[in-house]
Amino acid sequence: MDKRHFGFWNPTPTRHTLLEDAQGLFASSMIAALGLALMGSAGLVASGTAGVAFILHYLTGVSFGLYYTVVNIPFYILALKRLGRAFTIKTIAAVALTSLITELQPHFLSIDSIDPMWTAVLAGILLGFGLLGLYRHRASLGGIGVLAVYLQERFGWPAGLVQLAFDLVVLAAAFAVAAPFIVLCSVVGAVVLNLFLTVNHRADRYIAM
């Protein structure tokens, strides 16, 4: 195979090579996992299916990574039917990577003191960067992200605003496991994340596939 197709000498600037996709998925998953680790350290609830996984984790003590993987399974079916096999495979890989890194991260990263509101803003930005990187490589972190990408491509609805609407429902359920102030901080994190995506993610601005 021509070595240019691995990405170092990409002959087609509007199409990602295998290597470009691989490094994009890995880097984006690392950034997203850091955001999730910060949220978990502060007891916050993330948005989307990650929020559902956090709530189940707090209620049962079972691994966040396991719940995050399982909760995303139904959305893979939607991704396969509506967004194609390549998108689905890359999304499964991104969710698996993010789940694995999130589980391994406590062995390499320890946080002794953390402010919930500051964490919400910082984690929202980190997750925004992670999702933006995945979107630009035709992938997502599953769940609502899959639905948001589909609705943006099908109807032109901004992915960030679609995700925000669903996030508010998930965060309302967070009152079952967190104090009101923590839920408020979680809402701030969701707003930061989705406004970041609304401003920075436009299909007509980044055309590489």
Rank of each mutant, 00 (worst) to 15 (best):
P74I: 09
Y67Q: 08
D115A: 13
S99H: 07
L97K: 03
Y67C: 10
I55A: 04
L78V: 14
P106M: 06
T91Y: 00
F108D: 01
F108P: 00
T119M: 05
I101L: 08
E153G: 15
V70E: 05
F87P: 01
L80M: 10
S113N: 14
T69L: 15
V95D: 02
W157I: 13
F155Q: 15
A94M: 08
V95E: 02
G128I: 02
I114T: 08
P74H: 12
T69R: 09
D112K: 12
L97Q: 03
L168S: 04
T49E: 02
K90M: 07
A86L: 15
G156V: 13
K81Y: 01
V95C: 05
Y67A: 08
P106D: 09
A79V: 07
V62D: 01
T60P: 03
T102W: 00
D112M: 11
H107R: 14
A120V: 07
W157K: 11
V70G: 05
Y135S: 06
A93P: 05
T49A: 12
H57R: 09
V52N: 00
I101V: 13
F75I: 12
D167F: 11
Y58F: 15
P106S: 10
G145H: 02
Q163V: 09
G65E: 04
A50D: 07
G143I: 11
M117L: 15
I101S: 04
I125A: 02
L109M: 05
L164K: 07
P158S: 13
R85V: 01
N72I: 13
V170L: 10
P116D: 06
V71T: 10
V62A: 09
F166M: 13
A79E: 02
R136F: 06
F129E: 01
L56Y: 11
L171D: 00
W157P: 03
L164P: 06
A93Q: 05
L66V: 15
A172S: 15
G124D: 00
R82W: 00
Q152T: 12
F175N: 10
L168V: 11
F175Q: 09
D112L: 11
L131Y: 05
Q105K: 12
D112N: 12
T119A: 05
T119Y: 07
A53M: 08
A53Y: 03
V162A: 08
